[in-house]
Simulated assay, not measured.
Amino acid sequence: MTDPTAELPAMIDWGLAVALGSRIAGEGPVVSPTEAADAVAELRAGADRSTGLVRDFTGLDAPEGTAPILVVDRPGWVQANAEGFAVATRPMVEKILEAKKPSGIGMRVGSKITGAEVGGLLGFLASKVLGQFDPFHEPHGRLLLVAPNIVHVERELHVDPHDFRLWVCLHEETHRVQFTAVPWMREHLFSEIQAIADSVEPTTLLEGGVERIVEAIKEGRRGGSIIDMFSTPEQRQVIDRVTGMMSLLEGHADVVMDDVGPTVIPSVAEIRKKFTKRRQGVGTLDRILRRLLGLEAKLAQYRDGALFVRAVVDKVGMEEFNAVWAGPENLPSKAELSDPEGWVRRVLG
């Protein structure tokens, strides 16, 4: 793969991460070549169809020819996210290297360890994710739809596959539209990542790493996450801002998929009921991993963001709600997610 941080010393063995992550993820459900081809074609068509549906409902108009739509398998998702992870971690890597450049052998050994850790994380997530907008891909991002996972879930839930595929496409295409119709969104996300890196003391990352990870696992069993363990007060301020933004994006997409759904997806109510139950995790290990990786917080983002969007739209309408996209200053804070009236007063007067 092409390493976006190739000019930097390799603190993470990305090749190992991709290989291990792909092996852990597996191939997914058994399908015939015809079934696989049909699923890929239907997902591409569903994403294309969703563009107009999202535009008509939200009023957001994404320029054509930006942010390609890719239907991928699990290893393809691992590869894409390793590339994105390399871009996202670059500011942190640069700061660490400014403080202390590890020795050659130390770097090689360390990169294998971190490569294995990242590979394990990607391998676990690769079997869970149905779709994702990747904002780190140049120049405008890209949309990834993970075909084997979508087929697996539609079978597991015993729902109409054609309806379920379009339902997933509606949600994920909304994210593609959000980032391409709102041109400042990507750069704002990148600036927040840089702000987190700027607030980090490199010695904090270089010392006590193993002990802190063990403690994070203990916290994961009690409901905490690795993110909680490694965030300073300054970083938490940035994380709260990012939480507000991501909750808005996730909730907005959920509102689109559920409100547009009934007009084009006959079984949308059944799909939503079954899928919401599935989002909670199915087993003890799955629940622990979700907490440890911060995925429990992501479930809250869907819920809180959707409640915020619905409350504002019900009060002022979609056109007035779209002031949220005017600039970073109009994004809801984490506190405003539970106080939509406060956001309306602040932004709309």
Rank of each mutant, 00 (worst) to 15 (best):
V256R: 04
R345T: 11
V182R: 07
G244R: 01
T203R: 15
S231T: 15
V313P: 02
S103F: 07
L299G: 12
P328K: 05
L289K: 14
L166W: 01
F190W: 12
G21I: 05
F179M: 08
A10E: 14
S127D: 13
H158Q: 15
F308P: 08
R241S: 13
G46I: 07
V54N: 13
S22K: 07
D314C: 02
A306F: 01
D198T: 05
T204L: 09
W167G: 03
A311F: 03
G28A: 06
V255K: 03
A269M: 00
D286R: 04
S22G: 14
P183L: 10
K218Y: 12
P266D: 07
D258N: 14
P29D: 11
I226M: 14
V264E: 01
G52Y: 00
K101I: 10
A82I: 02
V159S: 06
I271C: 09
T89K: 01
V118R: 08
L206V: 07
L248N: 02
W77T: 05
S50L: 10
M318Q: 14
G26H: 04
S22T: 10
P29W: 06
I105W: 12
P332S: 02
L170W: 03
A297P: 00
S338T: 15
V109P: 01
E341K: 12
L285G: 13
E83L: 09
R287E: 06
D73V: 04
G261Q: 02
S32K: 05
R236A: 11
L166K: 10
A19R: 14
Q132Y: 13
F85L: 14
G261Y: 06
G26K: 03
F133T: 09
E329W: 03
Q301A: 11
T204E: 14
D48Q: 14
A82T: 02
W14Q: 09
V264Q: 06
G317A: 07
G59T: 10
T174N: 09
V109W: 05
V146T: 07
A126T: 04
P4I: 06
E138A: 15
H137F: 07
R186C: 01
F124A: 11
E270G: 13
G131A: 04
A62Q: 09
P75E: 04
H252A: 08
V256C: 01
H137E: 15
Q237Y: 08
A269Y: 02
E7W: 01
N330V: 04
W343G: 06
E192D: 10
V182H: 07
G115V: 01
L143E: 06
E173L: 11
P161E: 06
R303D: 12
A216R: 06
T263C: 00
V71C: 03
V214L: 15
V260H: 08
A195C: 03
V177L: 13
